[in-house]
Amino acid sequence: MKAVLMTAPGNPEVLQMQSIAKPAVPPGERELLVRLVAAGVNPIDTKLRKRGTFYPDNMPAILGCDGAGVVEAVGAAVQRFRVGDEVYFCNGGLGAHPGNYAEYTVVDERFVARKPDKASFAEAAAAPLVLITAWEALYERGRLQPGEKVLIHAGAGGVGHVAIQLAKLKGADVCTTVSSQEKADFVKQLGADEVIFYQQTDFVQAVLNWTNGEGVDLAFDTVGGETFHKTFPAVRVYGDIVTILEPDANTVWKAARLRNLRIGFELMLTPMLQGIVEAQKHHAEILEQCATWIDEGKLKIHVSQTWTLEKAVKAHQLLESGSVTGKIVLLISD
Rank of each mutant, 00 (worst) to 15 (best):
K311S: 10
M17C: 12
F89D: 01
V150N: 06
V216E: 09
H282K: 15
H302W: 07
G64V: 09
W253C: 04
V112E: 09
L138C: 11
E109I: 04
L299K: 04
T243G: 02
R141M: 15
T46D: 00
A125K: 02
I241Y: 03
A256C: 06
E103M: 11
H161Y: 09
A76K: 15
P247W: 02
A234L: 03
L287P: 01
A113W: 14
V216R: 13
V237R: 13
G40R: 02
K188T: 11
T251M: 01
A126E: 07
R35V: 05
A24V: 15
G75S: 10
E320T: 00
I20S: 07
V329S: 01
K327V: 01
K168L: 12
Q145D: 10
A124D: 12
S19Y: 15
A102P: 15
H302L: 02
A8C: 14
S120E: 11
R114C: 14
G147I: 12
W135V: 08
T231R: 09
V107W: 13
I328E: 00
P43K: 00
D193V: 05
G64S: 03
K115E: 06
E278G: 07
L144G: 09
G69M: 03
P271Q: 11
T177Y: 03
G157D: 03
Q145L: 15
I328S: 00
A154E: 01
K254D: 13
S323P: 01
H97V: 15
R51L: 08
A68Y: 02
